[in-house]
Simulated assay, not measured.
Amino acid sequence: MSSIRVTGLRVRHRKTLALDSLDLTLGTGVHGLLGPNGAGKTSLIRVLATVARPDAGRVELLGEDTAGHRGLAGVRRRLGYLPQDFGYYPGFTVREFVAYVAWLKDMPAARVPAAVERAVARVGLADRIDAKVRTLSGGMVRRVGIAQAVVNDPAVLLLDEPTAGLDPEQRVEFRELLRELGTSATVVVSTHLVEDVAAACTEVTLLDAGRIAYRGTPEALTRLGEASDGPGDHPIERGYTAALRAHRAPGAREAVR
């Protein structure tokens, strides 16, 4: 069963078409969402998180149509979401903030303390759980954001630029967490870092100007790069560039496979 099904999705920001008749189906696993600035990645994540509404099209999450209010509250309880611009209460401790988000998600009160400690430990902040959020570094705050997104063990986890501010060691640990989460949940990671996709994702969707330019595995994108002499330090980076160029070529009718 697909956790996410998008059909004919259109999102417009004033006069700009951010997503153009997008069709996309995602199931269990870690799905990397790549693309240049303005490709529509954040617009898609926001619609999937139910914080923005599309101008046209159909979005089904966990078998529920998000256009109506019936069932939407239940879907939101099963979502995890980290926006690119993560808002938080600086006067809260890490424990208090993650517990607050658990409360917003209607988690049973008896489950919250253990769930909070587990989520904070998963992002490597167990020793700072009672520190005020305002005392943390930028990378630590980002990890608090990841903790609040996973506290309810979501069936669908949506992460927009989650590794921003993380150092190399933290990014490696985060990739391990993604792989663990992807065994039982549908995880969508929007990122500019192609190497994160190569290391952690089971599938790649490349957006360009609101349309799908490529869908496939990281391994297939790497093979595409190995056959290309385009720019990039690594094969998967060259594959990214090759897929974009193929999509933009005059007369191109479908995404590179």
Rank of each mutant, 00 (worst) to 15 (best):
V189F: 02
D196P: 03
C201F: 09
S190R: 15
V172E: 05
G165N: 01
A199T: 10
A199Y: 04
L166H: 05
F174S: 07
E195P: 03
V204Q: 00
V197N: 05
L159H: 07
R171M: 13
L157R: 02
L159K: 07
L158R: 06
D196H: 06
P168K: 11
V204W: 00
E176M: 02
V204N: 00
A200N: 04
R175T: 11
A198Y: 01
T191L: 07
D160Y: 11
V156D: 05
L159N: 07
E195L: 09
V194D: 00
V189T: 07
R171H: 08
E180A: 08
H192T: 13
R175A: 11
T163W: 02
H192A: 14
L157Y: 02
E169S: 15
R175Q: 10
R171C: 08
T202S: 04
T202R: 07
L157I: 13
E176W: 01
L157N: 03
L157S: 03
E173H: 04
P162H: 12
G165R: 01
V197G: 04
P168R: 10
E161M: 06
L158M: 09
G182V: 12
E161Q: 13
R171A: 09
E180D: 15
V189A: 08
H192I: 13
E161R: 05
E161S: 11
E203I: 11
L177M: 13
A200D: 12
E161N: 12
H192D: 09
G165K: 01
S190K: 15
S184V: 13
A164W: 00
A200K: 01
S190H: 14
E176R: 14
V194Q: 02
L158E: 10
V197S: 04
R179E: 08
V189W: 00
E203C: 10
G182S: 11
L193I: 14
V197K: 03
R179C: 03
E203Y: 10
L158S: 03
A200C: 06
G182F: 09
Q170P: 12
L181T: 08
V197M: 07
L177Y: 04
V197Y: 01
E169V: 15
A185W: 09
P162S: 12
E195V: 11
E173F: 01
D160N: 11
D167V: 14
T186N: 02
E203S: 13
E180I: 06
